[in-house]
Design a protein around this nucleic acid. Structure first.
Length: 362
DNA sequence: GTTGAGCGTT
């Protein structure tokens, strides 16, 4: 379980021809200690091939880097987990199914309401109206904690449940959309982690206790001495965040590329690695189902760049079991803010349910 | 001397 959060080499695509290994290293060192940086070149000419690899010392740096695009020497570059390495990273459902929606419940309504429980990274409302929607949280634990509950939003009683991964969809081999920094895990070689009855000891037994009160401990940022990352919680989960290279502080990031740091959604897959088994253990509705395919179903749509929620900084995640509280240094970023409505067409109702009657999504 | 989706000579 400790091995799930180790760093891996990351591929950097789109490098300018001109970028040197030193420049590459210099750039990424603003995120944390860089153990390796290389630019792939033609052995003969020495000409760059336009991509390279980097490796961080801390998983936290890795996650943060994966969560955004990077302007390097004047070009936007993407950092991804290499194909050769994917499948090593686990993911956990951050998305919940919201049933009994009415038509007047807008994405903003949902985002605002559920933002009380944790940072919302995506809201999806099928069109045409289908009486349900999906809300994706940054923190998978928040998502899980809400499952099974009824909530009243604008006078409407909605029901939150697991967003049952649609089995056997795409996400097969050729990666799907991960522009904007969302999922990129689809290696097919990774089986289900353990199974529903696995360890189950990672999560505190007590359920999420609603919106954080004003006095609840807040691991968040707000200028705390530790900065805005959530290493305490990581450690609490048995993750040894080596070295604690914490470059990011609460408030001003040291890199020149300020804008997105706090506002961008973390890649839930990467972020949630350690929660996998335990979380599935909590998903009662899935316990009797065939093993879910972890390789799919949790992508956040074509563009995961949701605007930060209300720019208010995260809600602290309740201080308790919160896992991902590093985001949001206030001041909503320039994130897109749009979402919904740009998803692939869905199957007609009826053919998108599994044996348990769960609505599937893709 | 060009190029722009991709996946790593060692």
């Amino acid at each position: 379980m400790e091995t799930k959060l180790r760093c891996t080499d990351l591929i950097v695509l789109g490098l300018p021809w001109k970028t040197t290994e030193q420049a590459l290293r210099d750039y990424f060192e603003t995120f944390g200690e860089v153990l390796m940086a290389q630019v792939k070149k033609d052995p003969k000419t020495g000409q760059s091939k336009g991509f390279g690899f980097i490796r961080f010392a801390s998983y936290e740096s890795q996650m943060r880097v994966l969560a955004q695009r990077h302007m390097i020497d004047g070009r936007w570059c993407d950092v991804k987990v290499p194909n050769s390495k994917e499948g090593l990273i686990q993911q956990v459902p951050c998305k919940v199914f919201i049933g009994r929606c009415t038509e007047d419940l807008t994405a903003d309504d949902l985002r605002e309401y559920f933002g009380k429980f944790g940072e919302v990274t995506d809201v999806f409302i099928p069109k045409p109206f289908r009486a349900f929607s999906f809300v994706t949280f940054l923190d998978p634990e928040v998502a899980q904690s809400l499952c099974g509950e009824d909530h009243i939003i604008k006078g409407v009683s909605v029901h939150v449940s697991n967003a049952a991964p649609k089995s056997e969809t795409r996400a097969s081999k050729h990666g799907y959309d991960h522009r904007g920094g969302d999922m990129r895990l689809h290696g097919s070689n990774r089986g289900p982690p353990g199974g529903p009855d696995g360890p189950g000891g990672m999560y505190p037994p007590q359920r999420y206790t609603g919106p954080p009160g004003p006095n609840q401990s807040n691991w968040g940022n707000q200028g705390g001495p530790r900065g805005n990352l959530d290493m305490p919680n990581l450690q609490a989960l048995g993750i040894t965040g080596q070295g604690g290279q914490n470059n990011n502080q609460g408030g001003c990031n040291p890199l020149g590329l300020g804008l997105n740091l706090g506002a961008l959604p973390m890649n839930p897959a990467l972020v949630a690695a350690a929660l996998n088994q335990a979380s599935w253990g909590l998903i009662g509705n899935l316990q009797n189902q065939p093993e879910p395919n972890f390789n799919q179903g949790f992508n956040n749509g074509p563009n995961n760049n949701s605007g930060n929620n209300q720019g208010g900084g995260n809600q602290g995640g309740g201080g308790g079991p919160g896992f991902l509280n590093w985001m949001s240094q206030g001041g909503g970023g320039p994130g897109g803010g749009q979402e919904s409505g740009q998803w692939p067409a869905r199957p007609p109702p009826g053919q998108n349910q599994d044996s348990k009657g769960f609505l599937k999504y893709d």
